[in-house]
Design a protein around this nucleic acid. Structure first.
Length: 504
RNA sequence: GGGUCGGUAGCUCAGCGGUAGAGCAGCGGCCUUUUAAGCCGUUGGUCCAGGGUUCAAAUCCCUGCCGACCCA
């Protein structure tokens, strides 16, 4: 970038000043022996212990006078003349520094004047509590570590421009502490998911993202080209078909967490690349997988959020929605539709259903001319039921036409052994009793391919013909799970670098 | 794809036909325990881009770009 302004010029001049004094403000390394936020918390803990009346018991935390070596970014500067107060911040948090440049010597005083807000520095000093009770470090020496040549966003309002927040996420992370919290917690969510499955004896695998035939879902793929092989590949749209090959191969409990790519619209709930979890368990079925989903999400919520009551807050900080993960409703598709569309919905004629959907339920815009009867009901579910399922709900007994690739229910042949787990008004996780009949699977895939033979993953069908154990399978959209657990209303707020149109 | 809103100083925003503004940040002073420190002074602008209307456009009109939200 060639853009510049007076603030950048000043910083470049300070850089030149440091160089002129033989100071390299871009050090190769610096080894801190503690973290800012941790030290601050421990010193505060000691101060609390120290001021309590006798008997105190054993000392806790870090006492005043402890020597520490810290590194971080300067995020605030309060100039008191002979006393200078800085905030030093690393990933653990911040701590206040007290610096008396003249006391450190004339060289140090000159170098101090050439520091700017947002520079990285390393310091050594001793802990103390100020008169105002602020845990602080009395700095004995400091070293520039990484100079910032551009001004940081404001400290008070932070960075609010959504475009800059997404395009330059690092600025968002510097300026907006809650944003960093979200992504640290996203990392913990992934960690706890892995831990949950490993504990249950699952194997984590990685399967191809570049696929000759993109299968496992109905979605538009991205296309790419491999030069050496001289052929086209597609970015995967689902993990499913490779994980089932592993069931054939005898990996009985298997999961993958990975990126899917769908060449479709962007929205508050859709990013072209998104993270999917899929898990398959041999000898399980949709019912065992319901238990898996519920246990998994409970475990993750308790481990990461610390509660099963997930609060969503608006811009003013008021709770506008609480998701209760301690109760998981199980309800049939038909019952849920009846709740919104009338108890006799399935008793009337298809023509009457269509009329009611269009006229009474005002779904004219959602029901195309050629829709079949089950699709009319499907629109009712999607538009009127699913958005209202804020609390965890397993929707079961879906009509077989709606999910053509699933196994028919033994107890009710008009339905399939499938659930959709809805939370927060959106589908978080579908689960299946997986199809392991290669002949039925071939028919279903051929029907889905609509005669386009090249779309048929023949290799997958061959694998099924070698024999696949009965199995339960689930998929969980990790981004949506993070939105739900972390109280975020946009997928862009749980993806570090959401896709935006490149600037010209 | 359609609708609504937005794009002005590093950040957050006001101004909405008549000299480009504020707070914070920055810079220069004062202050030896401050913390959104304070006080005094001060620098800083392709008002998203391009066209049009007008004596005069950040402001009105048109087109485009980018973003947010809603709808499809």
């Amino acid at each position: 970038m060639e853009d510049t302004n007076s603030l950048i010029e000043q910083r470049r001049q300070n850089l030149a000043g440091l160089n002129a004094r033989g100071v390299n403000p871009f050090m190769n390394s610096f080894r801190p022996d503690a973290q800012c936020g941790t030290v601050r918390a421990e010193l505060a803990r000691w101060a609390e212990w120290n001021k309590s009346p006798e008997p105190k018991g054993d000392p806790v935390g870090l006492p005043e006078g402890t020597r520490v070596r810290l590194a971080g970014r300067i995020t605030a500067h309060r100039d008191m003349g002979k006393s200078q107060f800085l905030d030093l911040r690393d990933v653990s948090g911040r701590i206040q520094l007290w610096i008396q440049p003249k006391v450190l010597g004339d060289d140090a005083a000159e170098i101090f004047k050439l520091l700017d807000l947002a520079d990285f520095i390393g310091i050594e000093g001793t802990l103390f509590i100020t008169r105002m009770g602020e845990p602080s470090v009395k700095v004995e020496s400091f070293t520039p570590l990484g100079k910032s040549l551009r001004p940081p966003p404001g400290k008070w309002h932070g960075l609010e421009d959504t475009e800059t927040r997404y395009r330059q996420r690092y600025l968002d992370l510097i300026a907006n502490e809650p944003v960093k919290e979200v992504f640290l917690k996203r990392s913990l969510i992934l960690k706890e998911i892995r831990s949950f499955f490993h504990q249950r004896g699952y194997i984590e695998v990685e399967t191809p993202m570049m696929q000759a035939i993109p299968g496992g879902a109905a979605a538009q793929p991205f296309k790419t080209f491999h030069n050496a092989l001289g052929c086209e590949f597609y970015m995967r749209i689902a993990l499913e078909l490779y994980l089932k090959r592993l069931l054939v191969g005898g990996v009985d409990k298997v999961f993958e967490i990975g990126r899917n790519f769908r060449n479709e619209g962007l929205s508050r709930r859709h990013n072209p690349e998104f993270t999917m979890l899929e898990a398959y368990e041999a000898y399980g079925d949709y019912a065992t997988m319901m238990e898996t989903v519920e246990s998994l999400i409970r475990h993750v919520a308790l481990s990461v959020v610390g509660t099963l009551q997930i609060e969503h807050r608006n811009a003013d900080g008021d709770v506008f929605k609480t998701i209760d993960l301690s109760h998981w409703r199980r309800a049939s598709y038909k019952d849920l539709v009846r709740e919104k569309a009338g108890a006799d919905w399935f008793a009337v004629s298809p023509e009457e259903r269509r009329r009611r959907a269009v006229e009474d339920l005002k779904l004219a815009g959602d029901i195309a001319e050629g829709y079949e009867d089950f699709e009319v009901t499907g629109a009712v579910f999607e538009k009127l039921v699913e958005p209202t399922l804020i609390q965890p709900t397993f929707v079961t007994h879906l009509p077989k036409q709606l999910v053509p690739l699933a196994k028919i229910s033994a107890e009710d042949p008009t339905t399939v052994e499938v659930f959709e787990c809805c939370i927060n008004g959106q589908e978080i996780s579908p689960g299946y009793t997986e199809q392991n009949d290669p002949i039925a699977q071939r028919e279903a895939l051929e029907h889905q391919a609509g005669g386009e033979q090249q779309k048929l993953d023949e290799d997958f069908l061959v694998s099924l013909e070698h024999g696949m154990p009965p199995a339960g399978g689930i998929g969980i959209g990790i981004d949506r799970l993070c939105m739900m657990l972390l109280g975020q209303e946009s997928i862009r707020d749980v993806i570090l670098f959401p896709q935006l149109k490149p600037k010209a």
